[in-house]
Design a protein around this nucleic acid. Structure first.
Lengths: 152, 152
DNA sequence: TCAAAATAAATGCAATTGCATGTATATGTG
DNA sequence: CACATATACATGCAATTGCATTTATTTTGA
């Protein structure tokens, strides 16, 4: 059993965490809701499509998608299976590693990502952009970056 | 079909949103992981127990839990069923509304919440508290509050 | 070189979630 | 009052997720 100094957050820290959590929940609910209303897939698909589009002709290996999306291995395995079935990405056997494959976005996938971005981008603007000034946004970005980087 | 000015976020706004999303994912993964490692239930249970403990002897109606937790109605219905089955809360028919019930935390529930807090609180400190200065934290709290409030 | 360990990805099965609907009671209105 | 509508909560069923394990291949190192 672990013995040692038990770290405890102060009230401000708890407050920050509670609000991060709440903002995320509210925002995601709105965003997913809008996508659904428009008959579009969920954000998880967007993330995959975006990363694949960024990767370009090189494509991405599933384990690389795992890293960038923070999804579990089986999550990536299944989501790419579904997106492929829907025609928005393509999988090809990897020539330098017979265990693996490379994943590429299709033209239909690029179009879908663009359609989703119209809705998603607008929602981001509604939730964040419209409600924060430039200085606050710059600071927020900086602090969030710092927090993320500390989570090595 | 909707016609109108399509709002678009600027790069800084997208950056802020992307980082909010990423920090939440990382943090939640760490927190849920630690709880699981300790053989404790997931954060969703903690949220319910915390709200019930706050509510005290008055308890809470399921629809009130829905509001505070942002869970869907069926989500609340099921989570309280499971937590009750595990003995950490109790449901009683509501005397002024025969459709409803009131939910109360049990003594075992209070103990569980306390145990979870040891782990959860420490994780909050690791993820947030340790990595941010007081001034930044105060600012972050303020800006997050502002963003949440705008999401009426 | 070859066996052991590590890595890439998939999958069976149980648990959870989402969606739509059902049941019961309450409220509002003519 | 009587009916229509709204609210509170539960639940059947399909889809998704989590966990543990499997299969295939690559890497390591004695």
């Amino acid at each position: 059993m672990y013995i040692g100094k038990m770290k405890k957050p102060n009230d401000l820290t708890v407050d920050v965490w509670a609000r991060l959590l709440r903002l995320n929940k509210i925002a995601l609910k709105r965003m997913e809701g809008k996508l659904k209303t428009e008959g579009l897939p969920a954000l998880a698909w967007y993330d995959i499509l975006l990363e694949l589009e960024r990767a370009g002709v090189a494509g991405l290996r599933p384990f690389e998608l795992e890293d960038v999306t923070l999804l579990p291995q089986y999550g990536v395995s299944r989501i790419i299976e579904r997106i492929e079935k829907a025609g928005f990405l393509q999988r090809l056997a990897c020539d330098d590693d017979a265990r693996g494959q490379s994943v590429f976005i299709t033209d239909a996938g690029k179009i879908l990502r663009q359609k989703m971005w119209i809705v998603y981008g607008a929602a981001i603007e509604e939730v964040i952009g419209e409600n924060i000034g430039g200085a606050d946004a710059a600071n927020l970005s900086r602090v969030l970056k710092q927090l993320i980087e500390k989570q090595a």
